[in-house]
Design a binder for these strands. Structure first.
Lengths: 324, 324
DNA sequence: GACTAACTTTTGTCTAGGACAATTTTTGGG
DNA sequence: CCCAAAAATTGTCCTAGACAAAAGTTAGTC
């Protein structure tokens, strides 16, 4: 109760001054460890929040925003010492620019292709922008009827997810959009396909490592794997290595696919992948894709996982495994 | 690269001794802040890991497990000072016992009801235990045909989710099971229902607060809300207050439902709910349910959200809002 | 006896600055 | 030009103490 009163007090009592947050909240909101926030202040003076009565740092929303930008800049490959002192505006520009130069993973949608998928894509994006769940579902549903299965997956679902990912990074779509899209797209991929009697396609487990909460990449991998004729077991996001290994064993999967988003948790994700590699033995290939892989490609390869550079390569990798 | 070698070194070089982890890894695996791990050691000596050459703590897997148990005990309402010194075995017993005494939120499945739902339920649980995605999907699909809509949701989906939740807490189901079930159940709830022309049922946004990753409760809420005639916009887990508020505004929702699992992040979740309350204005009721609500009921109420004590009460609350 | 206010204990968060591990970049030699 | 050693950069971990927040207790009042 005291806590609540306290948390609200600033904005209630003094709506003019921006609310001030302790370092714990800032850490939670930015995803930066508290230590890092302090050391950045000590070394680079990138944000110097005023202190409360007892010497505690009190951050404004602007500080939080600035730290978010700094984090993005660092994730984008900049050095903290280079960007720490920049004006927030400059920083914003820099980050936006960096993100627009990230190579998009998807095989670029053929420029002058048939317009049918594009039309559905546009409609789907528009429905998503309006958070119109029913319309989005209807568009996808119509498309899945009108288009062939492979076309539906590679020409609509994959580009749709890629678009969402790009626009989310740009900031022109919010997290809700991503969540809603994940939910709906999931439901289209979750329907098990019926295989002709006697045919037992190889199974693949698709998920993301513990700590990685974004599903877009994993959903794309699912679509591609289905497309390549695999029986996909999609397990959602953020699973510890042990869980993945247990699932692989239990369902008799012949491969694993995972997606890494951002470099945020490089070392954690790497450690998880190493553990997974260890737990699985040498039989089961692990495919890793996503935004984050570029910068740590070498280390991933060294860890013994496959790192296809785009979805087409992923598809080839799958087919190679399948034919063994 | 050095990092990788280092991370693997122990288990590679010396497979006999259990691998030893730095405090960061332990924090990530247990979800306890580093500060808390250290202060528990300093004050209560609950785990006293040996130190490396440079004085750094190195934890074994057993230490991690013990800390997990301690955390569970504390979440269950025990005081750390009371349990810190217990033997690990005793601790395990205590935790299991505590969890079995948690009031199950669901209106207990009528003991001697018709056996049809029970049969489906058993089949579904069995399919889930085997991680047999296709069979689980088939069972639910069959059930949705054979049973009426309301029956399907309240007699099968809700008890199924409740069972999974209970067994997950007990430890007899793993996280993968929970993930797989969420994925599949989601796909059944995601299909938008068609309403008779001219009828515009009120919308409700269902999700969990940022930091709360378990979907089971939110899925149950979805089922109940659909059942009560609402148009459900399900947004998955872990959304910040701002996102939820934006979604509510954009889709014109008349209510919000969220689920809290565990007390892990009490204060964070509370703060989020307060922010949400603030952002939404006074028009939109917010329903909060789940395991975690018991202990902080008063503070939740004070924060201005509705806290139905079970799903039946939630249903009543929805109907009250609807008829306004 | 019930209710509230004030005090006490328990628990977790935050601070400081220094040590050092992990990673990247620079420098120098073959 | 390439490889290895050295240097710079960056993040993690350490101690110990102060104090904020929450839970529990006691005392005082109606």
């Amino acid at each position: 109760m005291r806590q609540i009163r306290n948390l609200l007090s600033v904005s209630e009592k003094d709506p003019n001054s921006s609310p001030r947050h302790p370092i714990g909240v800032v850490s939670a909101r930015t995803g930066l460890p508290q230590d890092v926030i302090r050391i950045w202040e000590r070394r680079y003076k990138c944000v110097c929040p005023p202190r409360g009565d007892t010497g505690r740092r009190l951050y404004t929303d602007e500080d939080v925003e600035r730290l978010r930008l700094l984090k993005k800049a660092v994730c984008g490959g900049r050095r903290i010492s280079d960007v720490a002192q920049l004006e927030t505006d400059t920083l914003q520009q820099l980050v936006t620019e960096d993100q627009n130069h990230v190579p998009v993973e998807v095989s670029a949608p053929a420029p002058a292709a048939t317009d049918v998928p594009q039309a559905f894509l546009d409609q789907a994006v528009e429905a998503l922008e309006n958070l119109d769940r029913n319309r989005l579902h209807r568009v996808l549903s119509d498309a899945s009827v009108e288009m062939s299965g492979p076309e539906f997956r590679t020409e609509l679902i994959v580009p749709l997810l890629a678009t969402i990912g790009r626009r989310w990074q740009e900031g022109s779509l919010r997290i809700v959009h991503e969540h809603l899209a994940s939910t709906i797209v999931r439901s289209f991929l979750a329907v098990p396909r019926t295989f002709p009697q006697g045919v037992h396609p190889p199974r693949i487990v698709v998920t993301t490592p513990s700590g990685q909460y974004h599903e877009l990449g994993a959903l794309m991998a699912s679509a591609v794997a289905e497309e390549a004729g695999w029986d996909v077991v999609y397990l959602g996001a953020s699973l510890p290595a042990e869980e993945i290994a247990a699932a692989v064993k239990q369902v008799g999967a012949r491969a694993v696919a995972m997606s890494l988003c951002y470099r945020e948790t490089d070392s954690h994700a790497l450690a998880e992948l190493n553990r997974l590699r260890h737990l699985l033995g040498d039989e089961i290939p692990v495919f890793v894709g996503g935004n984050a892989t570029g910068c740590i490609r070498d280390r991933l390869v060294e860890a013994g996982v496959e790192v296809p550079s785009d979805l087409a390569e992923f598809r080839l990798g799958l087919m190679a495994v399948m034919s063994v």
